[in-house]
Amino acid sequence: MIEAVNLTKVYHIPDKDPGVRGAVKALFRPRHTSKTAVKDVSFAIEPGEIVGYIGVNGAGKSTTIKMLTGILVPTGGQVRVLGRDPHRERVANARDIGVVFGQRSQLWWDLALRESLTMVGRIYEVDDARFQRLISEFSETLELKELLPIPIRNMSLGQKMRAELAATLIHEPRIVYLDEPTIGLDLLVKERIRAFIKRINQEKGTTVVLTTHDLGDIEELCRRVLIIDNGVLIYDGSLETIKQRFGKYREITFETAADLNGLDVPTGADVLEKGGRTLSLRFDRTQTSASRVSASIMSQIEVIDLSLKEPDLSMVVKQIYQGGLKETA
């Protein structure tokens, strides 16, 4: 369905000194710095999958999505989406995909949702019968009915995202790219959005590529995760595997009475964070224990409070970003 082979994107950023002189100089003798945003990324996504695509800001997530959606041309490698080159066959590709760009709405600020949706429907040449059927379907699944007469400018963030999803799915795309679909929403609304994504995936077999910072989204929706860091794909596999691989780790945080100076780190543990009077350690449960680690610290300094954390995805991902996966893999 989606196939990326050695996908690479290099940007040439012109070096420009500030001011008029810099602009003139750049005109006559342009200098460039090359920045590789995405490097040799390969993966294949099958129909009906929901794949989480995660990475920190600037890791290459949105560049990849832009290449998959046909906005950007890759510098090297290949993308095929439904057997097509998404940039060369941009229009054909656009008919089969839907894209939610995080906080940038595709709807008309001052128009009532119904009118906005009509316009989007016409852009995608959705015929009337199908359009009506989908509207009534969304009225139920996204509770859209009460939103239809409201202009986008008067909607809350959650309402906007529901409206956005309706607009993205009004032409029943086979693939949807969701960029941060739950950002800034409260828990209840998040739940609703996730349930909806799950539902269209199950009922219509829509393939979903999801980029998010919210690990709740990932845990609830994705069985498979791609992790990109510095433009390189560092993980492609099941969510379960990551959890297992990191399951042996625990995180322990101490709050101390005095400033931390020249502390000996107990064997089997390493420092995650060290503040003025707080210390976070990660330890391997198979090599040491919580009591041994805390005893070691307590023998060196007075501890006011301590907390122990089970591994959740956020901790796992933090570790991967910090190079943890490479160490342990």
Binding site: T69, G70, I71, R90, V91, A94, I97, F101, R104, I123
Partner: peptide, 18 residues
């Protein structure tokens, strides 16, 4: 600048027309 142009690029109409 705002990235709104990307929206035109993922729609099946001519971006200039849009």
């Amino acid at each position: 600048r705002t990235g709104a142009f990307d929206r035109f690029m993922v729609r099946p109409v001519d971006p200039l027309f849009h």
